[in-house]
Amino acid sequence: MAWVYLSRVVEGPCAALSALIESVGVVEAARAVRECALPETLRGPTEARRGMDCAERDLAVMERIGGRVVTPDDEEWPAWRMLGLSQLDPSVDEGAAVPLVLWVRGPRSLAECTEQAMAVVGARCSTGYGNQVTGEIAGELASRGWTIVSGAAFGIDGMAHRAALAVGGATIAVLACGVDRPYPVQHDRLLAEIADTGAVISEYPPGVTARKHYFLARNRLIAALADGVVVAEAGMRSGARNTVKWARRIGRPALAVPGPVTSAASVGCHRMIRESEALLVTCADDVIDEAGPLRLSLPGAVPPAPEDNLSPEEAKVYSALPQTGSRLPRLLADQANLPLPAVRAALSSLELSGLVGCDANGWYRLATQPRSPTSTR
C-alpha cells in the first residue's frame, strides 16, 4: 500500500523520493510524505498530491482489468535491468531514476521475459520500407526467443509488436499513461493482444493520461529493459533518438538501420550512424552480433552451420533467405547479386539437400538440426 500511495503522489521518476525510500524504507517514507516531514528537495514534487491516497482504489482497478502492481520487493521485479538507471547521477541526467513500481497487465514475469530482450523503436510515420525491415528484424529476433520491447506507438513500434505476436514470440509494451488507458486509442486491440500473451507495463498509476514529458521518461524504461535498442527508421526529429540517448548512458548498444538516402524517414538513422551514436545493422544477425551474448567456440565442438559444404552461389542464396518468411527468386537474385538462372539452380540444389522448401509465397528455410559435437577423450 505504501508503494502504491507513493506511486500516485509523484507519478513518474523521482530520484529524491527513491533516495528517501532507500534510506528509511518505503513505509516510513510514505509516512513522511503524508505528514510533510520531508527535506526541501521533496516538498515541491509531493505537495500537489500528498493528500491523495487512492491506493485501495488503484489496486481495485488493477484487479478488475486483470493486472497487478510489481514493486522492488517482488520476485519478478527486473532488478538487474534497473541497475543501469540506478548508477546514473540525477543531477546530470534529469529523470534518471528507477521507477517506484511497475503497473502490469499480462501473464509474463518481468524478470523472466527481460532476461533476453531487444528494444525496437522508430518513426510514428513509418514507410513501407521501415515496416518491412522492422517486421523482418523483430520477427526473427522473436522467433529466436528474444522479447521485443517497444512503446506501442503508431508506425515502427506497432509493427515491432505485431511481428513478435505473429511468430508467437514475447513482447512488452511500455506506456506513458496508465495501463488501463490504451494509448493510442486505435491500438486498443493490439494492446489487448500483447496483454494476453506478453506484458503491457507503465510506471504511472491507472487512470493517468499521457503527457509529453511522460513519453521522454518512458523511453528510459524501454532502453533499460532491453539488451540494446534498434532504431528501424527515424526522421530528423524522431523521439527514437531520445531512447538511444538513454541506451548509451546506461551502457546498452544503440543500433540503427540505414534506409534510402532520398528518404526523409531515415535521416535520423543516418545521422546517428554518421555521428557514431549508433552502429549500423541490417538484419537480426547483425543485432545479435552486437547486442547478444558472447559466443565462444568450445574445444571439440562443431558449430551447427548447415551451409558449410555449399557452393559459393548456394551459400549466397541461402544467406539471403530470412529466418522467417519467404522470398521469391527474383528478390533473392537482387539480394544475393546473382543472375536469376543461377539463383533458380541454387534453390533446386538446396531443396535436394533438405535446407529449403517452396510454397505459394516463395522459398523459405527449413528447420535444421544442429550436429552433435565430436566426442573427445
Results as ranks from 00 to 15, higher is better:
residue 212 K to W: 00
residue 196 D to V: 08
residue 299 P to G: 06
residue 96 A to V: 04
residue 196 D to W: 05
residue 101 V to W: 08
residue 81 R to L: 01
residue 271 R to A: 13
residue 3 W to Y: 13
residue 280 L to P: 09
residue 194 I to K: 15
residue 259 G to A: 10
residue 297 S to M: 07
residue 31 R to M: 14
residue 131 N to L: 12
residue 14 C to I: 01
residue 311 S to Q: 05
residue 83 L to P: 02
residue 25 G to M: 12
residue 234 A to G: 02
residue 184 P to E: 07
residue 24 V to D: 00
residue 42 L to A: 03
residue 11 E to T: 07
residue 187 H to Q: 15
residue 95 G to S: 06
residue 6 L to P: 05
residue 359 D to P: 06
residue 191 L to A: 02
residue 22 E to V: 00
residue 158 G to F: 10
residue 11 E to R: 15
residue 345 A to E: 07
residue 90 P to Q: 05
residue 76 E to W: 08
residue 159 M to K: 07
residue 59 L to E: 09
residue 167 V to K: 02
residue 135 G to R: 07
residue 18 S to Y: 02
residue 334 D to W: 12
residue 367 A to S: 12
residue 372 S to W: 09
residue 180 D to H: 00
residue 343 V to Q: 09
residue 185 V to G: 00
residue 115 E to S: 14
residue 117 A to C: 15
residue 85 L to R: 12
residue 203 E to F: 01
residue 330 R to V: 13
residue 323 Q to T: 14
residue 43 R to I: 09
residue 141 L to M: 10
residue 60 A to S: 13
residue 110 L to F: 08
residue 200 V to D: 01
residue 13 P to Y: 05
residue 95 G to E: 04
residue 217 A to V: 01
residue 142 A to F: 13
residue 367 A to P: 09
residue 75 E to N: 08
residue 21 I to L: 13
residue 167 V to A: 02
residue 258 P to T: 06
residue 167 V to I: 00
residue 290 E to R: 13
residue 218 R to W: 00
residue 149 V to G: 02
residue 65 I to L: 15
residue 157 D to H: 11
residue 366 L to R: 14
residue 241 R to F: 04
residue 171 T to A: 15
residue 294 L to I: 10
residue 62 M to C: 14
residue 186 Q to I: 11
residue 174 V to S: 02
residue 144 R to V: 03
residue 143 S to L: 05
residue 223 A to Y: 01
residue 86 S to V: 02
residue 20 L to P: 08
residue 173 A to F: 03
residue 374 T to R: 11
residue 211 R to W: 04
residue 125 C to M: 12
residue 222 I to D: 00
residue 314 E to Y: 01
residue 239 G to H: 02
residue 352 L to S: 09
residue 214 Y to K: 07
residue 365 R to S: 04
residue 19 A to F: 06
residue 357 G to W: 10
residue 349 S to I: 04
residue 258 P to L: 09
residue 235 G to H: 07
residue 252 R to V: 10
residue 340 L to W: 11
residue 47 E to T: 11
residue 109 S to A: 05
residue 4 V to K: 06
residue 116 Q to V: 07
residue 35 E to Y: 07
residue 16 A to Y: 05
residue 12 G to W: 04
residue 140 E to D: 14
residue 37 A to T: 11
residue 120 V to K: 14
residue 14 C to T: 01
residue 195 A to K: 10
residue 353 S to M: 15
residue 377 R to S: 14
residue 259 G to H: 09
residue 372 S to V: 14
residue 217 A to N: 08
residue 176 A to K: 00
residue 36 C to Y: 10
residue 339 P to C: 02
residue 1 M to E: 12
residue 339 P to Q: 03
residue 9 V to I: 03
residue 256 A to T: 03
residue 115 E to A: 15
residue 54 C to I: 04
residue 66 G to E: 13
residue 9 V to Y: 03
residue 134 T to I: 11
residue 272 M to E: 10
residue 169 G to M: 11
residue 366 L to K: 14
residue 367 A to L: 13
residue 104 V to Q: 11
residue 4 V to T: 15
residue 196 D to G: 03
residue 13 P to Q: 10
residue 71 T to F: 10
residue 123 A to C: 11
